[in-house]
């Protein structure tokens, strides 16, 4: 289902919403097939950074971006075909959004928009993606039901299945477990680990332990900058930055 993982390199990325600076020069290297977790408080710029990776930042009115993002060595902001980029870099947004169409149509949406025809092949692919998102067993009998009637947690997993449907090289998960119970979260985490090396995963999470469980590297964002990146074990055992230490010990809210 997944082709080849691609590396991600962010250099000097800055972003402004009108006059407000959301990213103040972000540098971040993610190796192909790695899982990198980004933690940090609200307003640190985590979601803005994610939106830049697949240039969804283009669609945000009033957002100005400077600096460079490279996926698989290619400069993202120089790309002509944004749709092709977005099929290479899948994004799952924090709030679960089932598109107002059937479950199966949701999962086949991306391939269909890229020109694939409906048929058994596409259905098979959809099944694979739904299995990968730990949703298949719950929806296999109601694939033709409207997706917006699924529960919040199911819609969240549907969003993950959908992001896998276009065989991305990079998968960006922004707070994917926000609406999912711990057991299901654990199942998805297992599946993410199994996908390692096939797809690069950038994970924004508020669950510090999720970063610890999953990530090869963990990064700390603070006020628009990545202030520390380390291999996960080292990150948690011996954080170098004063703010990271404080954050991990729960000294901030």
């Amino acid at each position: 289902m997944v082709k080849t993982a691609a590396s991600v390199a962010v250099k000097g990325l800055r972003a402004w919403y009108g006059g407000v600076e959301a990213l103040r020069g972000v540098d971040l290297e993610v190796g192909a097939g790695e899982i990198v977790a980004i933690i940090g408080p609200a307003q640190a710029g985590k979601s803005t950074l994610m939106s830049c990776l697949s240039r969804l930042s283009d669609e945000v009115v009033g957002l100005r971006v400077e600096g460079s993002v490279a996926v698989g060595g290619e400069d993202v902001f120089a790309m002509r075909d944004v749709a092709a980029l977005r099929r290479r870099v899948g994004l799952v947004a924090p709030l679960p959004v089932g598109l107002p169409m059937s479950v199966i149509d949701n999962v086949t949406y991306a391939p269909r928009m890229a020109g694939a025809r409906k048929g058994p092949e596409l259905r098979e692919r959809a099944e694979k993606c739904l299995r990968a998102a730990a949703l298949w067993d719950e929806v296999k009998d109601r694939l033709d039901q409207t997706a917006t009637r699924l529960s919040g947690g199911q819609q969240q997993r549907l969003a993950i299945a959908r992001a896998l449907s276009h065989e991305p090289e990079v998968l960006c998960l922004d707070e994917f477990s926000i609406a999912i119970d711990p057991v299901t979260t654990a199942r998805i985490e297992e599946l993410l680990k199994a996908m390692r090396s096939q797809v690069t995963i950038v994970l924004v999470t508020n669950l510090i332990h999720q970063a610890r469980r999953l990530a090869d590297h963990t990064a700390m964002m603070w006020e628009g900058r990545v202030i520390e990146v380390q291999p996960t074990a080292a990150f948690f055992d011996s954080p170098q930055h004063e703010l990271t230490r404080g954050y991990l010990e729960g000294r901030f809210g």
Partner: peptide, 27 residues
């Protein structure tokens, strides 16, 4: 039509025109 539908559609590699045609107009 909720803006989040458009964002989800764009994130899946649909163009603006495809998003309008498949997501926004039908709803």
């Amino acid at each position: 039509v909720p803006y989040s539908f458009r964002q989800a559609s764009w994130a899946l590699g649909a163009s603006r025109a495809q998003t309008v045609w498949h997501i926004v107009l039908p709803n």
